[in-house]
Amino acid sequence: MATQEAHPVTEHAPHKRRLKAPGKRNFSKPVRVLMLAALVLFSGFPLYWMLNTALSQDSELYGQAQGWWPHWERLADLGDVIGTVPIFKWLTNSMVIAGGTTLLSLIFAVLAGYALSRFKFYGKGAAGFLLFATQMLPEALLVVPIYALFASLGLLNGMGGLILANVAFTMPVSVWIIKGAIDAIPYEIEEAAAVDGCPRVTILSLVLTPLILPSIAAAAVINFFDGWNEFLLAKTFIAERDLWPASVGLASFIGQYLTSLNSVMAAALLFTLPALIFFLLVQRRIVSGLTAGSVKG
């Protein structure tokens, strides 16, 4: 959070943020405090409860005996608690799937974003519409035909096939993020490179890529956690328990109380934590990236 405060500024208004006009106070103070408290409770409680559950004794969890305060002393035993579910195996699978999705998606996105930003060509509007419209297609409606397609291609029940399917859903947003980033780079720099003797593809790899690295990083985080969180395709495509990503693995415990819930919650916490940390690091870029991707059709 320290870095966030050091650069508390969005792309929108670097210099205006600190100036707070008193006219902005729309609510009286007690009302404001009350509403903020309600919001914090609403947003924060479920996460707190997840931690609390993970740190509870299994026996406390039933018959409404769960305490309101977490047993911090159980933090040390958490490793053993988690050990009862094969979460590390699943997290590794998640990592492979998310990593593969990110890599493949970014390669497509950098190339396509460059074309959309810098070239005029016949069919550009159609390509733009394709990239715009496909990000609106519901995953769940496509899962049936993609399942049928992958079944006939023999791509089911493997992480490779899952990565291929994920990329189709994550790539369009990345394209728009990269396009927006390249749009913001002065064109003269590319022209200078062309005069210096750079072929197009070298301009992209040698000059533009380093310049848009922050946006690439943001797109990478978005892609990675899309892959990390993805559930539906993974659940549909992968039947074998050992190949499950953590999302499918953890979902298998919902409504099933054979495995002790504190273990499940601890595992879920482990699954959630990387997403939270990365999100806090690149939050602003994610927000501007996502909206830019969808707004600039």
Partner: peptide
Amino acid sequence: PRERDIAFVFQSYALYPHLTVRENITF
């Protein structure tokens, strides 16, 4: 442009922001 063997100096300088002065000149 390269095949024409010309050099072009831009109003906005168009230097490579990620390279040092020396790297810019060597590029």
